[in-house]
């Protein structure tokens, strides 16, 4: 029998993978992809809880999260393109102009 907890555990595993990706990878695009993994893990939680509570609100929140993810991807990739023009690199360690 598949319960809510199965989905929550899967979501936790996916979120941990996304977090690890943000810390381990040194490539701006892969870091953005890891953030997408984390957003999807949260979406899965929302849908599972919405199904468990018998409410459509979980799916509506997922709709809003997807909109924010699309906006984030568009702006984030525009920033990546602008940074790449400046430094010819995607390594986040090269962008230290604001480091004190």
């Amino acid at each position: 029998m598949i319960t809510v907890n199965h989905y929550l555990v899967l979501s936790a595993i996916l979120f941990a993978i996304g977090t690890a990706g943000v810390f381990v990878r040194r490539n701006l695009i892969t870091i953005l992809l890891s953030i997408e993994i984390m957003l999807n893990a949260v979406n899965l939680t929302f849908v599972a809880f919405g199904r468990a509570l018998g409410a459509a609100d979980g799916q509506i929140i997922v709709f809003f999260v997807m909109t924010v993810a699309a906006a984030e991807a568009a702006v984030g990739l525009a920033i990546v393109i602008a940074l790449f023009r400046h430094r010819e690199s995607l390594n986040p360690d090269t962008f230290t102009a604001l480091k004190w």
Binding site: M1, T3, I17, T19, A52
Partner: peptide, 27 residues
């Protein structure tokens, strides 16, 4: 990362909760 995952899984399985699938009506 492994500690985060283990803690989350432990917290979720420890909480018990409903074990009988999805009781709510489907939307």
């Amino acid at each position: 990362a492994a500690a985060l995952m283990v803690e989350l899984v432990w917290a979720l399985t420890k909480g018990g909760g409903e074990a009988g699938g999805f009781p709510g009506r489907s939307v």
